[in-house]
């Protein structure tokens, strides 16, 4: 799904056609695809889960995996765009939480129309992301450091607005977004699929997407080529803010209350998912689709940990171990391919 997998140019007219690739060549081509590893891992984990737990492959369990994936998945898409760009945003969870409670306030305390509140909430999340981008690009700050600080600002604003107390009385009009079903799938999951399709199209089929990969590969070179590096970076942060806000408001619709704790767990998991899904921490490589596959792997592991009744004290070790393994694999694989090249 990344640009390096785009089809080869057609041979010039009159040139001799190369012999058709052998089966071994085809396997090598498939194995070289950055998504191959994550797909294989996903299939192995899925099959093992089916074999080891009778409760895993049931319609109810698939529904809950899909729905819980949607929230982390939306944030993961935004984080993946930033990571491909060579950036990182540690405030995405706080933006999701702030946008969610702001949406709740608009609906309950200000009595605004739920759908207008949803739009305002998305605008707020986009504005928060935009602010991150502007500060990073204009003050030449490192995104990691700036967004640690901004996570405190957004998280603090969340507490100021709510005084730490959940906002209840969310109108039922938007509950469909969090609890409903569409085409036999949970609505949050459908929202994730739509967002993933749009972002994948932009990243792989438009100049803007190619610029993102170019900036992630070499920012200085991209600037020399005339790419508006800072504008695209700001755009990417705003997109991540929008997607976090969308996850936040869909979570509000799911819970039926605007909890100040929304987003608290959306910081580490999306980064881990992106890395597992083949997005390089140094930028320029990977795809949002791969990152979401990484989120699926994490989601299935979290699901089976509970299905198997693993002690809660071991759960952190398992999930943390997966992150370390994924990052190590990413590093080793890139060193191997660099040597091959």
């Amino acid at each position: 799904m990344s640009p390096e997998t785009s089809p080869a140019p057609a041979p010039a007219s009159g040139a001799q056609l190369p012999p058709p690739p052998s089966l071994a060549d085809r396997i090598k081509t498939v194995a070289a695809n950055p998504l191959c590893g994550v797909v294989v891992a996903l299939v192995v984990i899925f099959v093992l889960s089916c074999l080891l737990s009778a409760h895993f492959l049931t319609a109810f369990n698939m529904k809950i995996i899909a729905r819980s994936l949607a929230f982390v998945g939306l944030v993961t898409i935004g984080q993946a765009i930033l990571m491909i760009l060579g950036e990182l945003d540690l405030s995405v969870g706080a933006i999701g939480g702030l946008s969610g409670v702001a949406g709740g306030l608009f609906m309950v305390q200000f009595g605004l129309d739920p759908w207008l509140s949803l739009v305002l909430c998305l605008a707020l999340g986009t504005a928060c992301g935009l602010l991150n981008g502007v500060l990073i690009t204009q003050l030449r700050l490192h995104s990691l450091v700036l967004t640690i600080g901004m996570a405190g600002v957004y998280g603090g604003a969340n507490l100021v607005l709510t005084k730490g107390v959940a906002i209840t009385g969310i109108p039922g009009a938007i509950s469909f977004l969090g609890r409903g079903m569409m085409f036999g799938l949970p609505v949050p999951f459908v929202i994730l699929l739509v967002c993933l399709a749009i972002v994948s199209f932009v990243m792989l089929r438009t100049p803007l997407g190619r610029y993102v990969y170019a900036i992630g590969s070499n920012k200085a070179a991209a600037r020399m080529l005339g790419i508006r590096v800072d504008a695209i970076r700001i755009c990417a942060f705003a997109s991540a803010g929008f997607l976090s806000a969308l996850a936040g408001i869909v979570m509000v619709a799911r819970l039926g209350t605007a909890q100040p704790s929304i987003g608290d767990t959306w910081v580490l998991a999306p980064i881990a998912a992106a890395v597992i899904g083949g997005v390089a921490t140094t930028g320029g490589l990977g795809s949002p689709f791969g990152a979401v596959l990484g989120a699926v792997i994490i989601g299935i592991i979290e699901n089976v940990i509970v299905l198997f009744g693993i002690s809660p004290y071991w759960q952190s070790i398992v999930s943390g171990g997966i992150v370390v393994a994924a990052i190590s694999f990413d590093s080793v694989a890139r060193r191997y391919f660099n040597r091959e090249a």
Partner: peptide, 25 residues
């Protein structure tokens, strides 16, 4: 009695664990 504690005191995390427990009937 199987004891399944969320890692953090977060409603959505707790809901996820409750749903996974429901899946085991």
């Amino acid at each position: 009695v199987e004891y399944r504690a969320p890692q953090t005191a977060d409603v959505s995390t707790q809901n996820d664990i409750i749903e996974r427990a429901i899946a085991t009937h």
